[in-house]
Design a protein around this nucleic acid. Structure first.
Lengths: 355, 355
DNA sequence: TTGAAAGCGGTACCAC
DNA sequence: GTGGTACCGCTTTCAA
């Protein structure tokens, strides 16, 4: 395939002039430019991206590292929303996204080194994981760029974007309480998905109960694992409790799907005998279970925002030469009320009727 | 960051020797090797992937181009299974996968050029799309490597892997007929997803009917669009037909989910009043609708197989220097019988009972 | 406005 | 077993 020299020779100019034309430099006579363009067309010439990279010390690749393994990442719609958000932004700016899905935090650290230190990528979007604290300092020193999805260590102030889980828990709980529910069940995030000091949604749930002057039903809290099947089983667990819940809030949409199925199997219709609120509000959810009331976690925006931040950092680095630090951002959830939170179950309960 | 020269200097050897050590060449004295290793460790040295690429004319990146846009690709579990299959294989051999999701075939051709001709990738996995015929010849000429998911043009004999859709249709239909069904409804693949001469699953369905000596119910065929919502609506359409179906086979799992919901809304329980067979058997489906009988399209294998083929092609190119052609492969579906194909509806029909 | 030549960080042919 | 050096294809400083 043709090189810049072939083009130069054919057009009767120097490689530098060809380079100027390619990169839109205005200091080229129109006539010369046309000769070059014609030669490029004739030779079906495309600049060699690698050679350009070597010279310019940038690859136009960004790595995206999620340490939960390919089985999980490719099959969890919530993960994919984040990924999609980042992918959209990145490709919009002509960056390629290189997805790496190691099976553990340990392997992830290895991947991070592979991608960044070998300079296969200009920067990294990475899930919060233990050990990144050490990395962060290393990156700092070496001028490597990254943004994390979630805080990696308690004191991290820069270069992260995170969902404000407690605020989601607060909103959901407050709303359910306002419908008259007294006994709300909770399926939380798996503890292993929480960054070191990140607060669980439960913090917000507790707050809402406290504000309402009610005692929090600790016996109705279950740690989830983000899977549909787990949540389906959970339905029975909740119903075995006394007092049992008149409403359940769970930390992710897939868990809400499972819970819905579990409840139906037990003969309970969400929105009628029991209320249900989900934790993501994924587009996919609206197809599967269109009626689901939810806290919108804005996962797509989360990924997009991380990518935007990284692009700013990369741009600054290119222009000013130094690595920028962007203050961490929190995304607040919003309430989306649909058909599974009617308060009917709460009214029954108030009327002294128990299932 | 340190270069190979820094390491060489620190170890008191030449860059070439360092290169030998890095690449596992045996012609290095143990003592020298240790000196080099120590220097590498001290300097936290990692070889510059880009520089290596330039010299070796390989990038260790593979492109994956799907011309249906990001909204579709990231939210269709079937697409993601294929992608996951390819990603697993590729990363297992230390290749990076660069995902490109242009909005149309037209844009896809542009992407293909961007990735391949600029040498950002060593090879490409691409969805069958119109216009690839021209590309294929261009690739041939320029020695560029690709494998297509589906045949790109009727006479294509090499470098593709494709699901044998008619065989899936045949299996499903034959099985349903064996249960005693006479009137089977069909939701097909969207025509725009079919490669130029690719046969629809319907070809197989026709064959099964013909073998059974029955007339094919053309009035019960509906072209789908692969979405949940479409299929939900389709339930009503089927029930408005006369004679209506006692079983429905649809070309994808997401459509089966929608159809299930639609049928339930109409008061029909799949497996009881009407039989239902899905067209993918996705892992995700087993969580959402665990009971669904299906034709297993082996989408994960499809992606994996495409990646394997591409790796073989790339290996041959490296070793023999010439671009290999691999004969195209067809993947046959398999029947997975679960709870939604019981034949009850067919027996009722035979007994003269109609809904 | 245009060109000559050095250099990015590796690899590898060919000597020793 | 080890090293000197040219070269991959592009960009860029500096001079013309």
């Amino acid at each position: 395939m043709a090189t810049i020299y072939d083009v130069a020779k054919k057009a009767g100019v120097s490689p530098k002039t060809v380079s100027r034309v390619i990169n839109g430099n205005r200091h080229v006579r129109e006539e010369t430019k046309n000769k070059v363009l014609e030669a490029i067309r004739l030779l079906d010439y495309y600049p060699h991206a690698i050679a350009k990279s070597l010279k310019q010390k940038t690859t136009n690749n960004v790595g995206y590292v999620v340490p939960y393994g390919s089985d999980f990442v490719f099959r969890d719609p919530g993960q994919l929303e984040q990924l999609k958000g980042a992918h959209n932004v990145l490709t919009g700016e002509d960056y390629n996204l290189i997805l790496s899905v190691p099976n553990s935090g340990r392997e992830a650290l290895f991947e991070v080194n592979r991608l960044l230190k070998h300079r296969e990528v200009d920067g990294l979007i990475l899930y919060a994981m233990e050990g990144v604290e050490t990395l962060a300092k290393d990156f700092e020193e070496k001028g490597l760029s990254y943004v994390s999805l979630g805080k990696c260590y308690p004191e991290q102030e820069y270069n992260f974007v995170e969902i404000d889980a407690p605020s989601g828990g607060y909103l959901a709980t407050k709303y359910l309480l306002s419908l008259g529910h007294r006994w709300i069940g909770f399926i939380t995030e798996p503890a292993r998905f929480l960054a070191p000091d990140k607060q669980s949604m439960i913090a917000g749930c507790l707050k809402a109960y406290a504000e309402a002057g009610l005692e929090f039903p600790h016996h109705l809290v279950l740690e989830g694992d983000y899977t549909v099947n787990f949540a389906e089983q959970a339905a029975g667990w909740f119903l075995s409790k006394d007092p049992g819940p008149t409403a359940i809030f769970c930390a992710s949409d897939p868990m809400a799907w499972g819970l819905m199925r579990g409840l139906r199997k037990e003969g309970l219709t969400p929105g009628v005998e029991i209320d249900l609120m989900a934790g993501d509000d994924l587009p996919f959810s609206r197809a599967i279970e269109p009626d689901l009331s939810a806290v919108n976690s804005r996962l797509h925006e989360l990924g997009a925002e991380a990518a935007e931040m990284l692009l700013v950092i990369l741009r600054k680095k290119r222009e000013i030469g130094t690595r920028a630090k962007l203050p961490g951002r929190y995304l607040r959830s919003e309430l989306v009320i649909r058909g599974t939170t009617t308060g009917h179950a709460a009214k029954r309960e108030a009327a002294g009727l128990r299932r």
